[in-house]
Design a protein around this nucleic acid. Structure first.
Lengths: 335, 335
DNA sequence: AGCACCGGGGAGAGCGCTTCCAGACCCGCG
DNA sequence: CGCGGGTCTGGAAGCGCTCTCCCCGGTGCT
């Protein structure tokens, strides 16, 4: 920095002002300094900067997955489910104009303390927390840290935290309505994990919507949001209820597996069994036939989370708030 | 820190020594200080620390994907291909004992300058670079930065950089040998992108191994390492060469798609067409029948990359070196 | 008993930046 | 022509830590 200052014939203070875009710098001087910066190839040291500004200009995207001992590493799950890619895309897109970096931190319960320590050390200015599991202690831990945070769904235990969510119940109703409208009469569902509010809500809303319309006791199997899980659930479901003609699967990834099972069992889709998924991720397009599904605007939701987080960071006293997105039905071939 | 020092009745220097595990501290004092740290809940400020140590205790995992305009966002690809999950798992595992954080940075060519700036700013002590595309300028850019780096495969243009790779040619030979051994006579392959050395090498080695054994002109279709791509390639391949009875697919993800296509076309696997994949990622287990495949020890490779990087970081003068892993054949059901 | 040596703790400088404060300069007005 | 006020720049402090250097006290030797 001294070099730049000398090259430009100004003080370090002025160089600093130019870099930080302080408007009160004379435009001629500004230009000279900028040229000097370009010539010397000077790049500010972030450590020194954040030591004084107390800002790191980066936020963490903490992806907290419960450990499900029976399946492979949670990292594999994270890097296999398009959902997280969408989250990342949405968040980075929103953060880019603010010139804020996104530090992606996948975690399971074995290293919560690691994450907490990371956050406490001041590596980041705030955190976007993707946590679905009902009993995940992380939202509370992060909240207690007092660091700005936005959660990806309504926290299971009441927490004075900002969050964004999709109207899960409405989405499930959309699916039920569509299946009914196309003439299905023997409906069933493969739900998400029931210890995840989203899993619970989609199941619940699907069932009660149908119950209100003369379809009580809709059979359900609890899935795990994986492709293999969806396949197995569909097998079990069709074994127990061979006459099912309409199936709501609580995620696209599970739908892929379910579709395979249904067709393996000799049923035509959508002729014999109509299938509606949930998400509208890229997995929907990997399905054959192409998956009719309930679209969650995940990218937009992540972008909103990022914006909310920025607001919390820049105005510390800000009250927590939540925003809810409405899902829509995307009709393709499977129903 | 002053608080801790006062609480423990020592100087800040001693507190610092305790935190950094300097051995010359008296064990009684060490204990007192540790208690004081626990009581005050003191956490060192990383910015201040790295300002003086010139170390950030984190390394970047830069995942550079070429932008292929025809498919969806590269983030979707990264978060959909189990390969990257394995890389991340391997790297974090190896870094954990060093207490080094991994900052995951997916990038396509549109924001190379962003990544470079990030690296120059001193956010990280080194970089693990996952770059396969032949003409990707990033390896050279990173190299020119002079920051410690390890690349995931032999750089296309000669570069004095450390890298780890798998013996691609040997892997392809393993596949060819197996197909031949099980009696296949009309072989074909779905290769990876040919602008990726790995894609090129696997194709080349497969063909020349077979040519040496009386199978010249093995048909090939160029794939793109995606599930959908594999499906389409298999369709094209079987249309042009309906009598193929042995297929080597250059990645597990493509194998999933290829398997679907082959079976859709009424061929039994492995009875009519035997299929061997490459990777042995979780996708191999998503296949029906279960995929016989060439195993790349990706986690171990990533761990090795991390170790090499640590070595470069701690001893700056170190000469670049490379290590090559041998793949193995994992026989399951598809061949 | 005195001296050299060594182990262990304290004082203080300084890492590279931002920002407060003061002062220089210029303009316009009385 | 002098002075007030405003604009812009420079000086310098200080962010929280590490680490060198120095000093103190204890030990073992002569």
């Amino acid at each position: 920095m001294d070099q730049v200052a000398e090259a430009a014939g100004v003080s370090r203070a002025t160089v600093s002002r130019v870099i930080n875009g302080v408007p009160s710098v004379d435009s001629k001087i500004r230009e000279i300094v900028q040229r000097a910066i370009a010539e010397t190839g000077y790049v500010p040291n972030v450590a020194a900067r954040s030591l004084v500004t107390r800002r790191s200009n980066s936020v963490a995207l903490v992806i907290s997955e419960p450990d499900r001992p029976h399946d492979s590493s949670f990292l594999n799950r994270v890097f296999t489910d398009p959902y997280f890619g969408r989250i990342t895309a949405g968040a980075t897109g929103a953060l880019r104009p603010h010139d804020i970096h996104l530090v992606i931190i996948p975690t399971d319960s074995t290293d919560h303390h690691r994450v907490i320590r990371y956050l406490r050390q001041g590596h980041v200015d705030g955190v976007l927390l993707i946590s679905s599991h009902e009993r995940d202690p992380l939202p509370r831990l992060v909240h207690d840290l007092g660091i700005p945070a936005v959660v990806s769904a309504r926290p299971a235990s009441p927490l004075a935290a900002s969050f964004v969510d999709v109207d899960q119940r409405f989405g499930a109703q959309l699916a039920a309505e569509h299946l009914l409208a196309r003439g299905c009469r023997r409906l069933a569902t493969i739900s998400g994990p029931l210890d995840i509010p989203a899993g619970q809500d989609r199941l619940d809303a699907f069932r009660s919507y149908l119950a209100d319309r003369g379809h009580p006791d809709v059979p359900a199997v609890e899935g795990d949001f994986t492709r293999a899980g969806g396949e197995e659930c569909a097998r079990r479901l069709l074994a127990a209820h061979p006459d099912v003609d309409g199936l709501f699967v609580a995620s696209d990834l599970m739908s892929e597996g379910a579709l395979r099972a249904v067709q393996d069992l000799g049923r035509g889709v959508p002729r014999d069994v109509a299938v509606v998924g949930f998400d509208d991720s890229s997995a929907a397009l990997d399905c054959r036939p192409l998956l009719t599904t309930v679209r969650q605007p995940v990218e937009e939701m992540a972008a909103e989370m990022a914006e909310m987080l920025m607001a919390h960071i820049t105005s510390p006293g800000r009250l927590p708030r939540s925003v809810t997105f409405q899902p829509t039905l995307v009709v393709r071939e499977s129903a």
